[in-house]
């Protein structure tokens, strides 16, 4: 190569491009570091919570049974804990940054509580109109999964995160197919596929962050 390329300048250019790439990777890593934790927490909450519910219903878990008076409150605590953790993680993710994306983040955060209340109210309304407790035990887990799936899709669009898109689709599929297994089997379907998908997503996300994408 005897062109008029100056080796020193091209070396320099390559080095500067590497500096840019390394720094932007570092920013990505620091900004996204809490996300595997959030996915993992939700995964554990679903896996343990729905397994407990499944073990509380008659005709559920064939190996052991847990009284509903124990399973239901633990399920509630797990889900409430995951919601609180997500809010804290969400606030930490956006700390120190202010501007146009603050609005999007705030709307997204509020969406979770609003949608949660709307889906719960619909279930109550159905019960008030004679929905049996067996059907209610099919509606609530699926309604919840569909809500999470939809919100994950919105999050995927907002932050252009393919992992959130995949997760959203899995949640929609799990929520949609679980009722076909009937109660109480729908609970273990939610635990294994929903919780499992969340845990696998957490691991994939963590590995990719460590490798720098």
């Amino acid at each position: 190569m005897t062109n008029n390329t100056e080796p020193q300048r091209t070396d320099d250019a390559a080095e500067m491009l590497a500096v840019i790439a390394a720094q932007q990777r570092r920013v990505d890593r620091m900004m996204l570091r809490p996300i595997p934790w959030m996915l993992g927490l939700w995964g554990v909450a679903w896996l343990v919570g729905f397994t407990l519910l499944w073990s509380a219903y008659e005709g559920g878990n064939p190996w052991f049974r847990i009284p509903m008076s124990v399973a239901a409150p633990i399920f509630g605590i797990l889900i409430a804990g995951a919601i609180v953790a997500s809010i804290i993680i969400g606030i930490r993710l956006g700390r120190g940054v202010k501007g146009v994306s603050t609005f999007a983040g705030a709307v997204y955060g509020v969406s979770w509580s609003l949608c949660g209340m709307a889906f719960a109210a619909l279930g109550m309304g159905l019960i008030a109109n004679g929905l049996s407790s067996e059907l209610a035990s099919i509606y609530f887990p699926s309604g919840f999964a569909l809500m999470c799936g939809t919100l994950y899709l919105a999050g995927a669009a907002l932050w252009r995160q393919v992992s959130m898109l995949v997760l959203g689709i899995i949640m929609l599929v799990v929520g949609a197919i679980a009722p076909f297994f009937g109660a109480p089997t729908n609970n273990i379907v939610m635990a294994v596929f929903g919780g499992g998908a969340l845990l696998i997503a957490a691991i994939i996300f963590a590995v990719r962050l460590r490798q720098g994408r």
């Binding site: 720094q23 932007q24 940054v97 202010k98 501007g99 146009v100 994306s101």
Partner: peptide
């Protein structure tokens, strides 16, 4: 490079 990762219109402390 760090500031360029923020969306246009965002500021950082």
């Amino acid at each position: 490079a760090t500031l360029a990762t923020l969306p246009v219109g965002d500021r950082i402390t």
